[in-house]
Design a protein around this nucleic acid. Structure first.
Lengths: 160, 160
DNA sequence: TAACTTATATCACCATCTTATGTATATGGT
DNA sequence: ACCATATACATAAGATGGTGATATAAGTTA
């Protein structure tokens, strides 16, 4: 759907190395340890995309369905998310983030943002600019990996 | 095209969100599951920085020392890394990546690079360019988080 | 309605982390 | 030189979060 000129200016191998380091960096920036990475990522997806089926969430996170069942149970126990029946399918469960879940996400992001700001302050201004410029592109890249990304209807979301 | 020294043009909150998604993306791109994320990150650090003390590695990865002891034992069992005595300190252990470890790293990176290339092909060329342009900046940012980064002498490394 | 598929849950097991603690080697004050 | 303390790593026991196999209930198809 969009372009692929002759040359690709990206060294994918170097990108793989760099993004792996970013991954480690984010792990180090993480707020203590009371919620797993996968749980947080799932919460973030729910916030971004709206309520989703359990199986769908499992696929997005690249974990098995039983793992997602347990993960959602944990989220529910802490009232960060909730299960709802699917009116169109009695077998299915629709998972939605709660207000508390949103607040928790915001809280953690604020902490990470603060730490990121400290790191950013240590690199050249040109680096900050390059990172800021690439951020939307990185988001779009990440969206591709989700398989579904933002596409399947963001859903207005019923407030709780 | 960029640069604005005084103000910092980075929305750290948005960056936290974006990099969290990149983190999830990298998890999805990961080669199956026979080596943990921390193990891979440790191997990569050893390759990049040269042999390091166990405790130092633990700090870099943000895990406890016992966790690193076990992790290194696993790496050693698979001959991806090895323990060496520290001539200057009888208590200490110096961990080094092996040839096999390097090869394994290269293999995995090649797979990830291939998958990244597929994703990159789906985004606009301008996005690829922006990402390529930001990559060195991202590496430098990640280096900051390591605490030690590339600074403490890259060490020539004795070949095995 | 029987046979099959699909969505989720449950179970037993495994990997990897944590905290608490043990052991050996350094190091510093006397 | 010696004892007290600190440091580097190892070990043990428990928690957490994943996996594969399988159960259950609800849709789907013929």
């Amino acid at each position: 759907m969009e372009s692929d000129p002759p040359s690709q200016p990206v060294d994918e191998l170097e990108l793989a190395v760099g993004l792996a380091r970013i991954r480690t960096m984010m792990r180090l920036l993480d707020v203590p340890r009371d919620l797993s990475i996968t749980s947080l990522s799932t919460l973030a997806n729910l916030e971004r995309l709206g309520p989703r089926r359990l199986t769908e969430l499992a696929a997005m996170e690249g974990v098995t369905q039983p793992a997602m069942t347990q993960l959602v149970s944990r989220l529910e126990r802490e009232e960060l998310a909730e299960r709802r029946p699917d009116p169109s399918d009695g077998r299915a469960v629709v998972v939605a983030v709660t207000q508390h879940g949103r607040a928790e996400l915001a809280r953690r992001r604020a902490v990470q943002a603060k730490r990121l700001a400290e790191l950013l302050a240590e690199v050249p201004a040109a680096d900050r600019a390059a990172i800021a410029a690439a951020l939307p592109a990185l988001e779009r890249l990440a969206a591709r990996a989700h398989g579904l990304a933002d596409s399947p209807a963001p859903v207005p979301e019923v407030s709780e």
